[in-house]
Design a protein around this nucleic acid. Structure first.
Lengths: 344, 344
DNA sequence: CTGTTAGCGCCTTCAA
DNA sequence: TTGAAGGCGCTAACAG
């Protein structure tokens, strides 16, 4: 037995297919309550569901948004996918998620797939590996890039969503200064992206403002094995960074890591060096992924308001204002157990 | 400008639409190489992509499998989704993932949505909350349930994929016995599901075999706040379990947790009690989620071969043998830093 | 308020 | 080897 169709429902309810269609699309004013009831019952009885493909072919749009992430095995992006799903559900819209594994060819491929599905828009949490392609896509449907900031008017068609990266590192520095730290590092892979540059700038500015010592500890990612699935690379990088941090000539008493994954790595590396956190050394991450709280001691971090950001991204697609734009969210300092006054 | 259609390609290539269709569906024997080339070029030039909705409406099937998980924010299920995506890609098939948040009503809803998309099959990592519904679904398309074992022939239509749960706990006990432990607990929420029962049985049998002391420490989940998104509950539960474990009359020297999330919680709880792992106490988890390796010390655990399991699930759907079945995978002992000889 | 009708883009015979 | 034609299930005019 195959799926019931709109005709079957119409026959059972004793009305025409168009009334069923009206009913399904909430045009209740076009029929008598009695008709509504009959339709309702017929649908129930047959277990009828409209065929998405047919509907989509007719209307030209799918109730679907596309999401690109480097990998769902990375907990941050799993959480993002979850947040996007929740946000889209408010519009009765589904989400199709693809992992790109940071492969530009796959990214292009996957975008084309998404277009073939007639998605209403695309959210990408995968870096702007291929801005030209993204820009071309944005002609067809709204494109929202996560955690990306535009340098100029190059990408006039793309909207972006991110936290205020400079503020995040400034807040981290201020928190540490407030605790009494006078020598702080920012641990990061080479700051090639605009985001990381912004974090580095925020850091430097705050250091200068406070009139204290501070520098970047840049970790070469070629040191660590590449892991396209789980993105565990930053963890490994962080762990290996610990020694480099402690060897810095200006003897930092605290570190800010570019994100939580790296911070957790630094934390583990420090422990192996016999450095006690937060007694001997303070540590701050960025993101507030779940395992920040499960780390020991629980990681102080700057939280990204991920649900709010997902909501904003989805709104840009499903309730567009017309013009693309950039939305910047404030990070929130979550003080936990890895920060304390130096030597305490 | 709207998407190019098969007609446009045909016109540009100077052939008929059906040749394009033949080309797209790899029926090359039906045309001259020269024609192939022309078609190839025309497709390239227009950036043509067949419209999924139209194709699906015509053929009745979508190249799509559905995946249900409690929440993608839970790292285990993010990793599962990633593995399923990789497995499905080999069949040129896409994955549509839904989070159920362990809400039976939402689970039913989402399954119906999936059916409306004409998915080729459904994989569920969400517990069999509603077996009747699943069973009914299995009439329409293959259904594969993850981490579920059937008690009897009730669910004749559903296939299952899981590790050998009894063996997992047995292996854990044997590893600990080998290290010299003589008193071991299994920490678990009430073993209501068949899986947990199997783990408890495997534990008890191995304890009896070894002729040592062992018991279950059952943690009431009402103690911890519910977290439908991230499933952090087991972590909190594990942390609070530490005291209960240490207070057990038979003075265990090691614990096996029902999964890694709980094990990590126990590890943190122990540290707060001043119990040093593995010197004072040994700890084993199950799953091998990414953060098992990032825990400090790195968690000894029984790994689920998640990619192999995902491959098997996808194969059941996209290359079905016809009859549903159960596939059981062997867990793999990953010895890391949380297990040692007692008192060492 | 309800029924009729003409496609949406593609695939698949069938005939040429 | 290619072209023509019908229809997948649904929607949205438009006519009654």
């Amino acid at each position: 037995m195959s799926e019931p169709k709109i005709q079957d429902v119409a026959r059972l309810a004793g009305v025409s297919p168009s009334s069923i269609s009206n009913f399904l699309n909430n045009r209740m004013e076009q029929m008598r309550p009695a008709t509504q009831l009959k339709i309702q019952q017929a649908i129930q009885e047959l277990g009828y569901r409209p065929n998405n493909a047919a509907r989509q072919l007719k209307t030209g749009v799918a109730s679907m948004v596309g999401l690109l992430v480097p990998s769902l095995a990375n907990q941050y992006f799993g959480a993002l996918a979850c947040a996007v799903e929740i946000a889209a559900a408010k519009y009765h819209c589904h989400v199709m998620t693809f992992s790109t594994f940071r492969d530009p060819a796959r990214e292009r491929e996957v975008m084309a797939d998404l277009m073939a599905y007639n998605v209403q828009g695309i959210i990408t949490g995968s870096a702007l590996n291929d801005t030209e392609n993204l820009e071309a896509l944005a002609v067809r449907c709204p494109v929202v890039a996560f955690d990306v900031t535009r340098s100029n008017e190059e990408h006039a068609r793309i909207s972006t969503i991110s936290i205020d990266n400079a503020t995040a590192t400034s807040m981290a520095v201020e928190h540490l200064v407030h605790l009494g730290h006078r020598s702080i590092v920012l641990v990061t892979p080479p700051p090639l992206t605009l985001n990381r540059q912004a974090r580095a700038n925020g850091f430097s500015k705050a250091i200068a403002n406070a009139g204290i010592t501070g520098d970047l500890v840049i970790i070469d990612p070629t040191d660590a094995p590449i892991d396209p699935h789980g993105d565990t690379q930053l963890f490994a990088l962080g762990r290996s960074a610990a020694a480099k941090i402690m060897a810095a000539p200006f003897r930092p008493t605290a570190a800010i890591a570019i994100n939580d994954m790296m911070a957790i790595g630094v934390g583990v590396g420090m422990k192996h060096l016999g450095v006690q956190i937060p007694k001997d050394f303070s540590l701050i991450g960025i993101d507030d992924i779940f395992f920040a709280a499960a780390h020991d001691p629980p990681l102080t971090t700057l939280r990204q308001p991920i649900q709010a950001m997902a909501n904003a991204a989805v709104t840009r697609i499903l309730a567009p204002t017309g013009i693309p734009g950039d939305e910047v969210f404030a990070p929130e300092l979550i003080v936990r157990g890895t920060t304390a006054a130096p030597g305490k």
